[in-house]
Every structure is written in C-alpha cells, then in structure tokens.
C-alpha cells in the first residue's frame, strides 16, 4: 500500500491547502442538513404517543451525544497517530477537537435536563446515560486543563494524547460500571434513546441531523486547526504570505 498520502497529510502546508478546499463544502452541507433536519423534526415528525411533543428535543440531544462520544474516541486516535508517527497535524487536532467535544457534551447534558423535566418531573436524575455523559464532560475538562497548563506546546500535545488514550480505555469501563451502579440502586426507567421502533418520519430527521452535526463538527474543527497551523508556522514564508493575503482581503 502506498503511504505517501499519509505522510503528506502530516505536512502543515499541505493540510492547510487541502482543508481550505474542503471547508466550504463541509460548511454548506452542515448548514443545509441541520436546517432540513430541524424543519422535518420540529414540524413534520408526528408527536410521540407517550411523550407528546417534548420528545422532539432528541433531534438535538441525540446528535450532540453521539458527537460527544465519537469526538473523545477521535481524540485518542489522533493522539495515537501523533505519538506513534510524530505527525504534527494530529497533535493540533487533539487540542483543537477537545473544546468542541466538551461543548457537545454540555449541549447533550442541557438538552437531557430540559427533556427530563416534563418526563421525570426533575431537571436532573441520576440516570445511567446522563451520569456517563457528565463523567465524559469531566474527562474533557481534564484534557483541556492539562493542555492549557503545560506551556511547551509539544509536551502539551503529547500529554493530552496520553490522557486521551488512558481515558478512552476507561470509557467502556466507566460505561459498564455506571450501568451496573444504576441497576444496583434503582430499577431501570426508560431512557431517552431507548424506544420501541421509531416510525420512519421520526428517525429520518434524526439521521439527517446527526450527519449535519458531524459535518458541522468537521467544519469547526478544520477552521480551528487552520488557525492553529498558521500560528505554529508563523515563521515560514507560506504562512506569512497567507496571513498577509487574508488581511488584504478583509481590509
């Protein structure tokens, strides 16, 4: 197999150019998908037979929760790539993706709480999924705090990568132990995503929203990474030319 593309991906300049080409497409599809999904979910999907209209919050909650979890896994993957192949772009990705993941977790928690009020009658219940999500948020906080505390940026990236890998090994263990804890202390209630088979009109908007959220995530991540790449490469000629071009265009 030819691996040159893989190493090329590690070059900041190449990354900057290629990501510049992807960015508009990703942004447009994110906006379109989220718009279509939201309209379909809020206006056209039928109300739930048990929960009425309050179920519609899943169109934000579920994609955010998905994204929160998969972002953490991608942090660990980027961390491994950065540590093993010493790829600088992967280092950048770890630190730039963490805050997005944390925000997604916050959104999932908030929407979970909003959904919980009409359903359980309380803003917060120690439900297994919500608790696991809360722990995930703490894991994100740890990575972000560590990244900010270490001043040397190479060390910071490596340290965050190790923490993300340790965390990702822990996530399934956390998940199972929290599930077990939940059954030990209270009988299982129905949770936000466990439902009898959803009709097509209900899950199609969910699918569209989820894909839209992923595109949104990719677009935001690329933007953040591009800025960080420019900052890191500020001594090289191409980065200086690019910054001058951007300033010239906005002036």
């Amino acid at each position: 197999m030819n691996w040159t593309w893989f190493h090329k991906l590690g070059s900041p300049k190449w990354f900057y150019e290629i990501s510049g080409r992807w960015l508009p497409w990703l942004s447009i599809s994110a906006a379109l998908l989220i718009l279509v999904g939201a309209v379909m979910g809020l206006a056209f999907a039928p109300p739930d037979y048990q929960q009425g209209n309050s179920f519609r919050i899943i169109y934000i909650h579920v994609p955010a929760a998905f994204l929160a979890q998969s972002t953490y896994i991608s942090l660990a993957i980027a961390g491994i790539v950065g540590l093993v192949w010493k790829m600088k772009i992967a280092d950048v990705a770890v630190q730039q993706a963490a805050p997005i993941g944390a925000w997604m977790t916050v959104i999932a928690l908030l929407t979970g709480a909003v959904w919980g009020k009409p359903t359980w009658g309380a803003w917060w219940v120690w439900d297994a999924r919500l608790t696991a999500m809360l722990i995930l948020l703490f894991l994100y906080f740890g990575i972000i705090a560590l990244g900010h505390a270490i001043t040397n940026r190479d060390s910071a990236a490596k340290a965050c990568a190790i923490l993300a890998i340790v965390g990702v090994v822990n996530i399934p263990i956390i998940k199972y132990s929290v599930d077990w804890w939940n059954t030990l202390h209270q009988p299982a209630t129905f949770t936000i995503t466990e439902k009898p088979a959803m009709p097509m009109e209900m899950w199609l908007p969910l699918l569209i929203m989820t894909i839209g959220f992923y595109c949104f995530f990719a677009a935001v991540l690329l933007m953040r990474m591009r800025i960080e790449v420019l900052r890191r490469e500020s001594r090289t000629r191409w980065a200086q030319a690019e910054v001058a071009r951007q300033i010239g265009r906005s002036a």
Partner: peptide
C-alpha cells in the same frame, strides 16, 4: 503528567478523579 507544573495539585485531581469512578462504583458497590 503534572509533575513539571508549578501548581499541579488541583489539576491532578481534575485529571484523575473521573478515571477513579469505575473503581469507586465497584468498590463501594
């Protein structure tokens, strides 16, 4: 990971406590 930092104490707690949750749940459970 925090040994080189001037004020590592609180950060250490922040990094480690979430990872302690499974063993806490199992141990007290």
């Amino acid at each position: 990971l925090t040994v080189g930092l001037k004020r590592g104490g609180i950060l250490l707690a922040l990094l480690i406590l979430p990872l302690y949750i499974p063993v806490l749940i199992l141990g007290s459970g």
